[in-house]
Design a protein around this nucleic acid. Structure first.
Lengths: 239, 239
DNA sequence: GGCGAATCGTGAATCAGATTCAAAAATTAA
DNA sequence: TTAATTTTTGAATCTGATTCACGATTCGCC
């Protein structure tokens, strides 16, 4: 059935072109002004054709978020390859990568936040939602891998939590700080001057609270900055 | 100028009526199906009149979120009044209250998440955004109040962070877990069975990591459950 | 009270843009 | 080559937010 396969491939290629066009549109004018018809026109297809790929605009947005996730996962893989760091430093590196990724891809970050909204999430097709969950799989594996290694090395104690549950701690700290910093003006109103430093401090605190060895002195700002810049040069060399 | 005052009062009353009607609509059919015209009609006003109060639908949604914030703040006040608990227990009580509030007001929680989205936030009027920031003020005061008290009592060390920055730690944990649990199906996919227990564990870990005395044994599940239920009966008596 | 000016409320009309679907085109099968 | 099937098309539909010209109301002043 080579013809059927070819069809499938072509279909996938077209979808990719749609997504690339959508991304271009978003770069131009932000994702709030994204128009379905414009995407189709940009690719020389009719609007209706677009709807053979995406059940709705929200569905397309989620697909776009999923697509961008690839680059995100790549960061995590880079951490995975960084065997020079301790398990704790690697977990911390995840947080640094996550932060830098958000900084470098503000539109994608906004989009991600938007599609994770209950309102939007529920308007996407079930298939797309499943795809979204699936494509966070690798992230989960990498992170729990680090946790598992730490458990085996005795650098961390499970205390009744699964590796995934343990990983959720630092994850929610990152996610939470991210969410807060997305609210424009909040940190200013709260008189918080250096959100980046604060975020990393919170992660350090949290890792300490998990008892992840070796514990850090959270007050040692210099050491923290050194670790961050070390991670940025050693792990995320391409950025 | 009593007539001018009366005008203002009537205007405010009308706004309140609009918001109440909007809330009723949302209860009926979720905030995604909220229609401006319907709200106006429910209050026996023309659509245009609604727009004298709210510059756009997003603006109205943010106003609605701000309005609901009142009940949220009330929870925090209850914690403030609970002088029987240690500072640490009080901070923990904030987390419990926050969680329970989200459970009890799912529509409001979804709405809050939605309006905090960069996309929506930026479509609201600057005045409304400011109002939103202002009305989180009391929350900040209560929480930093607890932190300050802990600092004075020597139960917590600042280590170079301001009270607000310290408070951001537990806050972001709550916010992050909240954000993750809003993504329908995520915890199931991650094989996390008891998000509530996990959330409280994360908060305990985090408070430990901040060095907030007295430290807790995070593995002591029974003690944790006891604290949670104690808080629920002693602090949030009305729920 | 009466008058013009200013403000307010109205809701039909406008506008935007997502979504649909009947017809046309292309592809496949016989 | 023709008929059946699938795909594509894009104009038409539909929903619903937003606007604005108009009439009603109130205000300040005489």
């Amino acid at each position: 059935m080579s013809t059927k396969e070819r069809k499938q491939r072509e279909f996938a290629e077209r979808e990719e072109r749609f997504l690339a066009a959508a991304e271009a549109c978003i770069r131009e004018e932000g994702f709030l002004n994204l128009q379905m018809a414009r995407i189709a026109r940009l690719c020389d297809y009719a609007t209706g054709t677009l709807y053979q790929h995406f059940s709705s605009k929200e569905d397309l947005l989620l697909a776009l978020a999923n697509r961008g996730n690839e680059a995100h996962v790549e960061l995590f893989r880079q951490v995975q390859r960084w065997t020079a760091g301790s398990t704790r430093d690697r977990m911390f590196a995840i947080a640094v990568g996550d932060f830098d990724f958000a900084q470098r891809n503000p539109e994608h970050t906004k989009l991600l936040q938007y599609v994770h909204t209950r309102a939007v999430w529920e308007s996407a097709s079930p298939q797309r939602r499943e795809q979204a969950l699936t494509c966070t799989g690798p992230v989960g594996e990498i992170v729990t891998g680090i946790v598992r290694e730490a458990l085996e090395a005795g650098e961390l104690e499970a205390r009744g939590l699964s590796p995934m549950e343990l990983a959720c701690g630092p994850w929610s700290v990152c996610e939470g700080m991210q969410a807060l910093s997305q609210v424009q003006g909040l940190f200013e109103a709260l008189r918080i001057e250096d959100p980046e430093r604060l975020r990393f401090r919170q992660v350090v605190n949290h890792l300490n609270g998990m008892g992840w060895q070796p514990l850090w002195d959270p007050a040692d700002q210099a050491a923290l900055e050194q670790l961050v810049s070390r991670i940025r040069t050693e792990v995320f060399t391409d950025l």
